[in-house]
């Protein structure tokens, strides 16, 4: 029962072929499927090649800004990081923990008209929310907490 060359070659070739195509499948469109995370300040500074790209934006829902609409079910609200505020149009049902004055992460795209369109919101309890300008002022710890509350 020794190896014959042809058999070995055949096996290795077919393994490589199948493995390669599976690997291509796994890695080929990996980059396109990454959804990057931004803050409202970064979003307002978007260059046009970021328009209509799927991104996630984390911030605090501005108190008193949430307006629901019945058809199609959804709402509009303002999302802020302290330095910049963006208007968000949301279609769908927000999660249970979504609340004004609390942290939320929205997934969707930024349009040329300066409007964020989203159909997915993730929310967390975030009593330890700290506006982001503090972080710019050099307060490191609150930033971590802020990110933590937003991370899903």
């Amino acid at each position: 029962m020794m190896w014959s060359r042809g058999k070995k070659l055949g096996l290795v070739t077919s393994l490589l072929l199948v493995g390669g195509s599976l690997g291509y499948l796994a890695l080929g469109n990996f980059g396109e499927n990454l959804v990057y995370f931004f803050t409202p300040s970064e979003v307002v500074a978007f260059t046009p090649d970021y328009y209509h790209k799927k991104v996630r934006v984390g911030g605090m829902v501005v108190k008193g800004s949430v307006k629901t609409r019945p058809d199609p079910v959804g709402m509009t609200f303002q999302l802020t990081d302290g330095a910049a505020t963006i208007p968000v149009t949301f279609k769908g049902i927000p999660p249970d923990l979504f609340k004004e004055g609390q942290g939320a992460v929205v997934e969707g795209y930024w349009s040329k008209a300066g409007q964020f369109h989203s159909n997915m919101i993730m929310a967390k309890h975030s009593e330890d929310y700290m506006p982001i300008e503090l972080r710019r002022a050099g307060v490191e710890l609150p930033k971590k907490d802020f990110m933590k509350t937003l991370r899903q």
Binding site: L22, F30, N33, F37
Partner: peptide, 30 residues
């Protein structure tokens, strides 16, 4: 890869990413 790449990227570059269900679905169906 999909689970740990975002963690590694955040550690090394500080940028946050997520890998969404569409990626896994596209790979796992075949």
């Amino acid at each position: 890869l999909g689970t740990l790449y975002p963690l590694m990227l955040e550690t090394w570059q500080g940028s946050k990413v997520t890998v969404g269900p569409p990626y896994y679905n596209a790979v796992f169906m075949p």
